[in-house]
Nucleic acid binder design. Structure first.
Lengths: 110, 110
DNA sequence: CTAATTAATCGTAATATTGCAATATAAATA
DNA sequence: TATTTATATTGCAATATTACGATTAATTAG
């Protein structure tokens, strides 16, 4: 029926999925990459940087913010967005687990 | 409208988005976690493990496979699924970039 | 206060995702 | 060969996502 069965999964699994989903769009990858490149950012910048209209960029920023991957504060007339370490920490520990597993994996059955 | 403007982003950005999107569902996170836990897996296992019907699990496996995050081989009557290192490598280098940035970031403007 | 600038929100069309029953396919076994 | 077992595919309903024009809200400059 089209609704994710969130209730049936653990909180950790749902959190990770939310974070990954937020990164699951090239525009949002581009936003993260741009934030790293300029090391602090105004939204207007992004509208020029991305091949998308201003409302669309605003929407993508909102999703990244909701997922906890970026933070935004008013700075004069515009808004300063930057990476939110907290969100990335959670992803980091998940991938650490995977990397440790992959490095120690003895026999790859497939 | 409603179609992601894939053409306007770099191949790397699109690839990362595909990988992240594939992880953007709790069932698929659960599948990855289970594959790590049992260190090789048969799909039937997963149908019992997950709160989803067999066709739904099959679909999620397909998406993980398409994204390059898991591999599957026939093993007798059933199929043996396991992690595909290649896919995770790509994600790893992206997060390395982010971690390096976050660790060296001087002033957090937000 | 008014105009200009910047970014968020609303409304909506186009498309994608999620989930499952029903069915199909493929291999193992009796 | 017929049956069982394991997994994939199809078709469809419910819902979510993507994108953007129009509008609104908030801030700054004059």
């Amino acid at each position: 029926m089209g609704v994710t069965k969130t209730q049936h999964f653990t909180e950790e699994q749902n959190e990770l999925a939310v974070l990954a989903k937020a990164l699951g769009h090239p525009a949002r990858i581009a936003i993260i990459e741009h934030l790293i490149k300029v090391d602090s950012c105004i939204c207007g910048d992004l509208v020029n940087e991305l091949p998308l209209a201003q409302p669309t960029v605003s929407q993508h920023l909102k999703e990244l913010k909701n997922a906890g991957l970026i933070k935004g504060n008013f700075e004069g007339a515009s808004i300063c967005y930057c990476l939110n370490e907290e969100g990335f920490e959670k992803i980091k520990s998940f991938f650490s687990l995977i990397n440790t597993y992959l490095e120690n994996r003895k026999d790859q059955c497939c």
